[in-house]
């Protein structure tokens, strides 16, 4: 099974929707590394491929790349492992409260959205809440209130997170998924770093719909 599009392609769409993604640079096979980056260090270098579901496990991700020398090395290493894949260099974003936002077709209710505690603990805590699309801002607020970890999004131990920014991400992504419901099977935005002033999508994956159905 393959992803419908590579991470950099999906992120370009998200950016167009007004959803914040890290500043980035795409290097196709053979592209040289430019002498300077349009954003500062540290950066992340990763493989942006339709065949990679889990970059970390595949060794396709280099975090905290501190300077041009380290970046050149990281690019060289990734190209050795994945010679035919595009590489994505992104600014390393300041951390925030990690959320997961997902979309999928439920066999009973149709197109649904999931919002929850994201990042590496998403599968462990399974602290997620569901709604059928379309959703209103009120629906998304209610979802956040139902999370066991709702305090995370209300400012916890000095970590401030903009619920408003997260709600906006959910609403904008929801509208796009609904408009493209025939072709989209599942989408993960995970993690989304929710910070005091904004919410930025750190990783995004899209799966095509397996069998087109008659569902409305």
């Amino acid at each position: 099974m393959k992803l419908s599009m590579a991470e950099h392609e999906l992120k370009a769409i998200l950016a167009n929707l007004g959803i914040k993604v890290p500043p980035s640079l795409v290097l196709y096979p053979g592209d040289p590394l430019p002498p300077s980056l349009p954003f500062g260090y540290p950066v992340v270098a990763k493989v942006s491929s339709t065949s990679l579901f889990h970059k970390t496990e595949a060794g396709a991700l280099r975090l905290n790349v501190a300077d041009p020398v380290e970046l050149a090395q990281a690019i060289q290493d990734l190209r050795a492992l994945f010679p035919n894949e595009p590489l994505l260099v992104e600014a390393m974003e300041r951390p925030g409260v990690e959320a997961i936002v997902g979309f999928f077709h439920d066999p009973t209710f149709g197109l649904c959205v999931m919002v929850g505690v994201g990042g590496i603990y998403a599968e462990l805590y399974q602290d997620v809440v569901f709604r059928r699309l379309p959703v209103t801002a009120g629906d998304v607020e209610a979802m956040l209130n139902e999370l066991r970890g709702r305090a995370l999004f209300e400012g916890f131990r000095g970590m401030r997170a903009s619920r408003q920014a997260l709600v906006e991400v959910v609403l904008k992504a929801s509208r796009w998924v609904q408009e493209n419901a025939r072709s989209i099977g599942q989408m993960d935005l995970n993690p989304v770093f929710v910070r005091e002033e904004d919410a930025v999508v750190i990783d995004a994956k899209l799966l095509a719909r397996e069998e087109p159905t008659t569902e409305k």
């Binding site: 099974m1 439920d106 649904c112 997620v128 709604r131 629906d139 799966l207």
Partner: peptide, 26 residues
């Protein structure tokens, strides 16, 4: 029920049982 052939996080977290809970509340 119906285990889904899904590999994204969303797929593995969204058993129909949990979806029912959210949708009924909505």
């Amino acid at each position: 029920g119906g285990a889904k052939a899904a590999s994204l996080h969303t797929g593995s977290l969204s058993g129909s049982e949990r979806v029912v809970g959210g949708v009924l509340r909505q």
